[in-house]
Simulated assay, not measured.
Amino acid sequence: MGEKIKDTTEALNEAWLDRARILSEALPYMQRYDKRTVVVKYGGHAMGDAGLAAKFARDIVLLKQAGVNPIVVHGGGPQIGSMLKRLNIESEFASGLRITDKSTVEIVEMVLAGSINKQIVGALNQAGGRAVGLCGKDGNLIVARKLEHKIHDPESNIEKLLDLGFVGEPHRVNPEILQTIIASDIIPVIAPIGVSEEGDTYNINADTAAGAIAGAMNAKRLLLLTDVRGVLGKDGKLIQRLSVAEAEALMKDGTISGGMIPKLETCIESVEKGVEAVVIVDGRVPHVVLLELLTEHGAGTLIE
Rank of each mutant, 00 (worst) to 15 (best):
P154S: 06
L294R: 06
A210Y: 05
S115K: 14
K263G: 05
M260L: 12
K41E: 09
S257D: 09
D200A: 11
R284T: 14
T100D: 05
H149W: 11
A123P: 03
D227N: 10
E90K: 09
G129A: 08
V289K: 08
T226C: 00
P170W: 12
L112Y: 02
V231S: 01
V132D: 01
I268D: 06
E176F: 10
T201M: 02
N69F: 15
T180E: 15
I256V: 15
D34A: 10
V108R: 04
Y202N: 04
V279P: 00
A216E: 08
I186S: 07
L62Q: 06
R19K: 08
E292N: 06
D101I: 05
T255G: 02
K137V: 07
T301Y: 06
I239L: 10
D253G: 03
E176I: 09
S115A: 02
A183W: 14
V278K: 03
K237R: 10
L63F: 05
K150G: 00
I151D: 13
I213Q: 02
L224V: 09
V275W: 08
A131F: 03
L63M: 08
G44M: 08
A247M: 09
E269A: 13
G96H: 08
R145K: 15
R172G: 01
K4A: 11
D7H: 10
G128N: 03
I182E: 04
H297C: 09
S243T: 14
E198K: 14
V68E: 02
A191N: 06
I186L: 11
A94T: 15
T255C: 05
H152E: 08
G67M: 10
G199Y: 15
E269Q: 13
A277L: 02
Y42C: 01
K263S: 10
A249H: 08
A210N: 03
V108S: 03
